[in-house]
Amino acid sequence: MNTAELRAALEEAGLSQYQAEAYNTLLQLGAASATEIADACAVPTARIYDVLRDLESKGYIETYEQDSLHARARNPDEVLDDLRERATLLTDAAEEIEERWEEPAVDTHKVSIVKRFDTVFDRAAALISEAQNEVQLAVTPSQFEELRPALRRAYDNGAIIKLSLHTDEESRTIPNGASFDGIVTEVRHRTLPTPFVALVDRTDTCFAPHAHSLNQYGVLVNDYTLTYVFHWYFLTCLWEVWDTVYSSRSASLPLDYADIRHCVREIEPLLSDGGRVRVAVEGFDTETGKSISFVGDVTDVQYSGGTSSNGAPALSQLAGQVSLSVISGGRVYRVGGWGAVLEDVEATRITVREVTGVS
């Protein structure tokens, strides 16, 4: 590094042009009077005294009186430490900028990673209390008891509540059926360790690994698309294959569905037998995003997994696009479920009001 480059580096480290010039000169002279320093560099004599005092206050030099003001460079250890810290900081900043450019962080308003399970649990309780449409919940019996007040409020709000209750080998005891009355819609029992999962109204997810996991953390999601991913995890791993131990659903009409796939599985056999199924649909217009509701007859069901030839279709047949055709007021609406794009309506609630023509 030549003299000009050193001066430039000192200026980058926070010295003024005159300070860098004077310090660089003093390094060459060793010790000198203020006048000699001014004569040897480009700092005006009228400014040299102020420049030297500033350098002294920054720890670069020390001044002393010897007939006139003299100065000498201090032991550079402190200066070198400062410069190296600045270099490390700049290097770290460069690496961080590169990392953020290549892998942008997810918006913290959408996804948060937290350390404490209590944070996840408290957030879930608050969200469940305000649920209006659907709650999907995987918890232990003790966690269920703690969430009972929040679940009761959600149930009273009209939300459909699906509870996956998990126990381990040490304790397989679950609450009796009466303890679920007025709290949940349906309960299934899973006999394996399970993460804590709460999905609320298609938008919010609260997740934490099960207690025996090596990694303890929590994830809070406020995002429609990411919550849909957790929905399929809940459906396939925590719900579909496990036995129902409680249901508040009766065999009599009306029957409410928050999940179009559940609805299709139950009404397709009726349609295949020539029945007339009348439904009320609540949801959103997929083109405008505005709320929409109507009552009409189901004329057809469509799903990409192939038509069932023996009773209700399996979940695997309904893993792709699923929709209903509903005629109302002379118009045929194509009704989809969560994430509907190609259909006219994304249904948040389908209520079967009437079934006729089935023996």
Rank of each mutant, 00 (worst) to 15 (best):
F230G: 04
P195Q: 11
F230Y: 15
E266W: 06
L270P: 01
L214R: 15
C237D: 13
W242C: 01
T203E: 05
N176Q: 11
S248M: 01
F284A: 04
P254L: 06
R172C: 01
T244V: 15
G182F: 04
E170R: 15
A251K: 05
R278C: 10
T205H: 05
R261C: 07
T194I: 01
R249S: 05
G289L: 13
Q216S: 13
A280T: 15
T191E: 14
T167W: 11
N215V: 06
E186L: 03
H210D: 15
C263D: 04
D259Q: 00
S250E: 13
S247V: 00
N215R: 13
E287S: 11
H189V: 03
I183Q: 12
V277R: 07
D273G: 12
D181W: 03
R261L: 09
E169W: 12
E282L: 07
V279G: 04
T225V: 14
N176K: 12
Y224V: 11
P195Y: 07
T167Q: 05
R172F: 00
P195E: 02
T286A: 04
P209W: 12
F230D: 07
D201E: 05
V200Y: 02
T225R: 15
A198R: 04
H231F: 06
R172H: 03
F207S: 03
R190E: 14
V200F: 10
V279D: 04
W232F: 06
Q216R: 10
I267Q: 00
T191Y: 13
A280C: 10
A280G: 04
V277S: 03
L270C: 02
R261F: 00
A208W: 07
R261H: 00
L271I: 12
V184C: 02
V184K: 02
T288P: 03
G275D: 04
E240I: 06
D223Q: 11
I267E: 05
A198C: 04
V200P: 08
R265M: 13
Y246K: 07
I267F: 05
S248L: 02
A211T: 15
V245I: 14
R249T: 07
Y228D: 14
V279Q: 09
G182D: 03
S272D: 14
L199V: 03
A258Y: 00
F196K: 03
A178S: 13
A280H: 14
T191C: 10
A198F: 09
Y233N: 14
C263G: 00
L192F: 14
T205K: 04
H210C: 13
S252V: 11
P193D: 13
N222D: 10
T286N: 14
Y233W: 04
V229F: 08
V277T: 03
E266P: 01
T167P: 00
F284E: 13
F234L: 06
H212A: 15
T191M: 15
V184I: 08
A211Y: 08
L255M: 11
Y246E: 03
V241E: 15
T227F: 09
D285A: 10
I260A: 09
L253E: 03
E287Y: 09
D273R: 15
A198K: 02
V281L: 03
L253V: 01
D201H: 02
F230A: 07
V281S: 10
W232P: 00
T236M: 13
L192S: 11
T288N: 01
F207Q: 10
T236N: 11
I174E: 08
